[in-house]
Design a protein around this nucleic acid. Sequence first.
DNA 1: TTTATATACGATAATAGTTATCGTATATAA
DNA 2: TTATATACGATAACTATTATCGTATATAAA
Lengths: 149, 149
Amino acid sequence: MIRLNRTTEYGLIALRHMSQRRQNITSAREVADQYGLPFEITAKTLQRLRDCGLIQSAQGAHGGYMLKKELEEVTLAEFLQLMEGPQAVVVCAPPMGSGHVGCECEYKGKCEIKGFMTDLNTRVFRFLSSIRLNELGRLRTVLAIGDEP
Amino acid sequence: MIRLNRTTEYGLIALRHMSQRRQNITSAREVADQYGLPFEITAKTLQRLRDCGLIQSAQGAHGGYMLKKELEEVTLAEFLQLMEGPQAVVVCAPPMGSGHVGCECEYKGKCEIKGFMTDLNTRVFRFLSSIRLNELGRLRTVLAIGDEP
DNA sequence: TTTATATACGATAATAGTTATCGTATATAA
DNA sequence: TTATATACGATAACTATTATCGTATATAAA
Ligand code: SF4
Ligand code: SF4
């Protein structure tokens, strides 16, 4: 229920990379190389972030990407929606953020847990909205002692 | 990131059904019929709940299933772990509940968001642990006005 | 003008995970 | 003996995720 997409991780890795190099432009190649990510997917991920308005792109030889939005202004809920599409705990619940697009479910008529699920969906959305992407910069990778064999 | 398995829903539907019919035994057939669920999967789901100690089974002609544990004592975090296996936000984070079994990730060495992810994992676990299955009984299906076309 | 380097983007293959089904065995009350 | 139930392994069908390929376009610099 809880696992993120790889592309979401790639996106966060790229955003953090950019937030550390303020003012400086970066490129899909640089990000992919530095973190060992697959180039093609990294490139597409960055294009997607640009489509969403989180970063801006410049084409051509010295082109690349730069942060556009303040990461503090982006919640994890919003980011997930941008990267993974509309999210909901169950198909009958309205996807986070936009709209009451409550989908269809074949069990809808007889289902007795819909109320519970709708409530859960709301709470999950609130939880994810309480986390902002500027937290990416706060925590660094702390290798726990004994983490490696 | 956020969607539950169908089997988890089937399990919750069954648990709620049983919690409404205290003392009375129910069966996979009864649950499947009443809510229109696929019988085979419902049966396996109930077997799984029994393996986990949430319900007890009786074989034979008048057999079936009964609640064993108080739903108030079961958190959503525990339930998800039982139904969907060890859960974590990312593969490098320790799955909820049991252990520091932090898995392997090919990007581990260079990754800079591991700290953020580990922290997120902990917070998600806390969130899911704050919800208990007795809430299943509190909310009923409230059909929103205009929910159907 | 040519070259090197970058983004842009559609199409598709490979992989993994979820969901559903089939077949058979066993237990038990009537 | 029969009807009804759980128990359980194997596998098929479906869906989503993840990775790759091919080609087009933009731009700075030689
Ligand atoms: S109607 Fe019930 S079974 Fe269907 S998605 Fe909603 S909660 Fe799940
Ligand atoms: S090491 Fe980094 S990329 Fe790998 S799973 Fe952990 S957070 Fe994700």
